[in-house]
Design a protein around this nucleic acid. Structure first.
Lengths: 185, 185
DNA sequence: GTCTATATAGCGATAGAC
DNA sequence: GTCTATCGCTATATAGAC
């Protein structure tokens, strides 16, 4: 419904961008306000405090995760392949919110860490019915976490080569699928 | 050789501890000095600036990684199982330095991110001769990254249950070993 | 080598005009 | 709803005594 992006949304966008590209330390109210094209006072009208800004980000993340879970359940290739594939940063809204929240969690924010935990739990619960046992689930979830972690470390510039893409990603997905589908219990 | 822990080492220890348990934001010169039992001036005698402190941490990490690589190559169960197993935080010196550096990298420090990249590359090069192809290597490295990432998120208090330990960890290692050893090319 | 000041700058947040 | 101005606090870093 919001055709012209409201200032509130622009502030959240700017906050995420700075967190992802320059880290938590750089995401000051001044910097966020400037990137969003508002004054610090204007920002603080929409978000009363920095904690409030973080809460806004966490709420947005939760919404995006719910949308993703829906897509996962309807993916033709199945939830597992979908989950691994989309763990490689695509620069979509979900990836950006997730990376931004992860940065805050690493910075010491308990609220951000909790938001991340809830999201991961949601994904795990969605995948569980589609694999044999907890070892399979552990492998898939941890692999995805590893992809995200490396995406997080690579943003500040040059590619590290640690995140498989293209044909190399397909081989990895294939390897996981074969492992998980080996014997059906 | 250093029997009485020198102030310089105590400062690095304190810096790591605060980074791991309270995040980058909390690791101020004041806090580190206090935890190390020296004054701020005393700290700044050993490390001329905060950047210098970070450089000291990165150097320590590199040393510890070299020691770990030696152990990996001599592990009876092989480098792969050793690497996965020791990716679950054991609260040893290496894990602490690694977690502390990861926190700094997430905070936006390019130097910390670079130190992490170099370490990961070193491990990957060590494991490569022991697996079939790059897909195997990707899986192992990413799984390990995922374990570290979750260890990182869990330190601020209660266990998340996301990091497998004990029998659950053994099942995961077994799953990886079977996958990697399936057909020998 | 280690300390106690102190300078300087940047941050989050408030007040009040428009 | 958005702005400018300003307060109070905290952080890094310096200077210089011991």
């Amino acid at each position: 419904m919001p055709r012209p992006p409201h200032a509130r949304e622009r502030v959240l966008d700017a906050y995420e961008s700075i967190l992802v590209s320059d880290g938590e330390r750089a995401a000051t109210l001044d910097a966020v306000a400037k990137a969003a094209g508002v004054s610090k006072g204007g920002l603080l009208y929409h978000f009363a405090s920095k904690d409030d800004l973080l809460a806004g980000l966490a709420a947005r993340l939760q919404e995006l995760i719910e949308i993703d879970v829906e897509r996962m359940l309807q993916a033709p290739e199945g939830p597992v392949a979908y989950y691994i594939r989309t763990s490689v940063m695509e620069d979509d809204n979900l990836d950006r919110s997730l990376a931004a929240t992860a940065r805050l969690a690493q910075g010491g924010s308990a609220a951000a860490a909790e938001a991340l935990r809830r999201g991961r739990q949601r994904w795990a619960d969605t995948i569980r019915p589609h694999v044999r046992d907890e070892a399979d689930l552990d492998m898939i979830m941890l692999l995805s976490d590893g992809l995200y972690f490396n995406n997080l470390l690579g943003v500040d510039g040059h590619d590290t080569g640690f995140v498989p893409t293209g044909a190399r990603l397909e081989r990895l997905i294939d390897l996981v699928q074969r492992t998980v589908n080996r014997t059906s219990r």
